[in-house]
């Protein structure tokens, strides 16, 4: 199914509005939390830090968390756009290529052998698992987008089954996994997230650069060949970016479903058929969705917090039903 291309003026205005919404939501996420901090103190914590508990809450907990939401949200959403365009499947999300299952399997094995006991260990193990799973999926399913998705789904099922068996046999492994498996932005401020966030930033820029070529590939393989595009190289680059983006996001925040499914659909409605604009909108709307969900996660319970993945799943269910009804019988 194709959508009409929108004029550049409307797209620029739309993106600016989205950026303004993102700025507003980011400010809100720094101001709202379980502990009430007066707005003036929030500003002072950023501009005139005095080391008090209120300022520590803002500077050392909320700001890193907001930055994490920006990075993870952009990564998942952009990876979602790339995987949907690459697989020509509107119901695809980064997890179908085995990235999440690979990271989960690696966390399970890493916990069993004692490699995932620290935040850094958990992060490295998850990245390794995501990369290894994607390489395996690509080596088996590189022939066509459909084969790629089928391989990813099959590998995910196998890895999930083996992981489940290990967790049933080893209660200690289950303890580590169950907290990792529910994606959350809370409690990550002590983790060394600088490098993964930098990798995500570079990968998003690369995705923007690649999106022009994907725009051509999205027209169909023969048409793309006719226009001189190197389809195999573009697919390989897209797959590498999906792995890096989804793997890094999963490593720093755990599995957060639906962001990579929901946001591409919203981006498509705003950007029309242009892949570059879809990537640009996804890079802004992904963080908006994750920040809004995270604010909800902080205030939903009278005591403590809900993991953000629970909130995105709650929002994502209706969107998935909408997507199935909207696109279920028609190709992208």
């Amino acid at each position: 199914m194709t959508r009409p291309r929108r004029g550049p003026g409307a797209l620029v205005v739309g993106l600016l509005v989205a950026l303004a919404v993102l700025a507003g939501v980011a400010v809100l996420s720094i101001g709202v939390g379980a502990h009430a901090v007066a707005p003036a103190d929030v500003v002072r914590a950023l501009l005139d830090f005095d080391g008090s508990s209120d300022h520590l809450v803002v500077r050392d907990i909320r700001v890193p968390r907001a930055v994490l939401a920006l990075g993870a949200g952009a990564a998942l959403a952009v990876a979602g756009v790339l995987v949907q365009v690459l697989s020509r499947n509107p119901l695809a999300e980064p997890g179908v290529l085995g990235v999440t299952a690979g990271a989960g399997f690696a966390i399970t094995v890493g916990s069993a052998v004692g490699l995932a006991s620290s935040s850094l260990g958990e992060l490295l193990v998850a990245v390794l698992g995501a990369v290894a799973a994607t390489l395996l999926v690509y080596s088996v399913g590189r022939g066509s987008p459909l084969r790629l998705v089928l391989t990813g789904v099959a590998l995910s099922s196998v890895l999930a089954g083996v992981s489940l068996g290990m967790r049933l046999l080893m209660p200690n492994v289950f303890d580590v996994y169950r907290f990792w498996a529910v994606g959350s932005l809370a409690g990550r401020e002590q983790s060394p997230n600088g490098l993964p966030l930098a990798v995500i930033a570079v990968a998003v820029v690369c995705a923007l650069l690649l999106s022009r070529h994907l725009d051509v590939v999205a027209l169909g393989e023969s048409t793309a060949h006719g226009l001189g595009a190197n389809v195999a190289r573009v697919r390989l680059a897209a797959l590498a970016l999906i792995t890096v983006l989804a793997g890094a996001a999963t490593a720093i925040a755990g599995p957060i479903l639906f962001v990579g499914l929901m946001v591409p659909h919203l981006a498509r409605r705003l950007a029309g058929a242009s892949v570059p604009w879809m990537v640009a909108f996804a890079a802004v709307l992904g963080p908006v969705l994750l920040l809004v969900s995270d604010i909800g996660a902080r205030v939903l319970l009278p005591t403590g917090e809900v993991p953000v993945a629970v909130v995105t799943a709650f929002l994502g269910g209706p969107v998935l039903i909408w997507a199935v009804r909207r696109y279920g019988a028609a190709p992208l």
């Binding site: 379980a34 502990h35 809370a186 902080r298």
Partner: peptide, 11 residues
């Protein structure tokens, strides 16, 4: 016993 957010540690 309860499970508050880390933000509530000082209080």
């Amino acid at each position: 016993s309860e499970y508050p957010s880390i933000e509530e540690l000082p209080a």
